[in-house]
Simulated assay, not measured.
Amino acid sequence: MTDNAQENQPAGYLPDAVWQPKTVYGGQFASINRADSGARFEQALPVGKHPLQLYSQGTPNGQKVTILLEELLALGHEGAEYDAWLIDIFKGDQFGSGFVGINPNSKIPALVDHSMNPALPVFESGSIMVYLAERFGAFLPSEPRARSETFNWLMWQMGTAPFVGGGLGHFYAYAPIKIEYAIDRYAMETKRQLHVLDTHLASHEYLAGDRYTIADMAVWPWHPGSLFGVYGTHAFLAVEEYTHLMRWYHAIAARPAVARGRLVNRTSGAPGTTLRERHDAADFDALLK
């Protein structure tokens, strides 16, 4: 322990020998976060007309899956038609019994494939993407080198997202007070991640080389997608200085399937940028005219 406890935040704070939850936490998620898991109330999940049922919200992790589904449909895979039901994490929908039943970790997104008997639940965005890519034989190369490269970057994203979202995003945008040490710690790591991508994309069209894969779909909403939108840190981090990353980002943003997928299950944004639920391709018509 440090000897200068008066300089801690709050002054005099030192960690207890055994952590105990506080009675009151500040911040946007104060009434939701707990140290235990499991359902908090009974709430069955709705089921639509398609075999694939997605339960999600249009966060970066949610966008990964809806972008993939829209890309699969654009390729002509009719079996990728899906219903996307909103799980509003700001209201605690993720703790309903139905959702916890398919994802005990209570995090979006979660998918149920009703074409399987019994129906197959899949949770964790990376797992869902691999499942769908293998199920439809698209966006995941079979050749060992390209396949490994795709998995390298997919797993890289899964490991780095906590620093961007849970770290910088929380302390910059959601924490009840601004803590310089915490923001600087996570800003430095996020900048390093942006540099990793920029350096790689200087000599590669896409993350796995010359082909567009689930790795690109996974990384795009986070780096720098979340820094532009969810957390508003693009100026703070000078994201535009990563020219190779921005070339890649804008190229993917221009894809029609990406334009559709990023809208699904969004609850906030400018008019024409939110589609709370998606049950048919025609649901986009009013937004993407």
Rank of each mutant, 00 (worst) to 15 (best):
L263W: 02
I183A: 02
R147S: 00
K289E: 09
R260I: 15
A259Y: 14
R40K: 06
D216R: 11
V24D: 14
A30W: 06
H170I: 05
E42K: 14
Q63V: 14
G48Y: 05
L54D: 01
Q9T: 15
K289H: 05
S203E: 08
Q9C: 10
P21L: 11
A5R: 15
L69G: 07
G167E: 05
V230Y: 12
P60L: 12
G166W: 13
G38C: 02
K191W: 02
A215P: 07
E81W: 07
A238W: 01
F163C: 06
K91P: 01
L54I: 09
H234P: 00
G126S: 13
Q57F: 07
V65N: 11
I32T: 03
I179W: 00
Q57Y: 00
P21E: 09
H279C: 11
Q157Y: 08
R145V: 06
L86A: 08
M1V: 01
Q157F: 04
P51Y: 01
N8Q: 13
G27N: 15
N8Y: 10
L154Y: 06
Y55W: 01
A133Q: 05
D88P: 08
G166D: 12
V239Y: 00
T2R: 14
V47F: 07
Y174I: 14
S268F: 15
F41P: 13
K49H: 06
Q20P: 02
K178L: 12
S226Y: 02
D283Y: 13
F29Q: 15
L14D: 09
G98N: 12
D283R: 00
T160R: 03
G166V: 10
T150C: 06
A251L: 01
S97C: 07
G165H: 15
V112W: 05
G76N: 00
S97Y: 07
S97W: 11
P104W: 00
P10A: 03
F136M: 00
R211D: 03
L275Q: 10
W220E: 08
W153E: 06
K178A: 15
F90T: 14
R135P: 04
G96W: 13
L132D: 00
V219N: 14
I32Y: 00
P224K: 05
K49G: 08
I183L: 09
H234C: 06
H204T: 09
D3F: 04
K191Q: 13
S56A: 08
E277W: 13
Y231R: 07
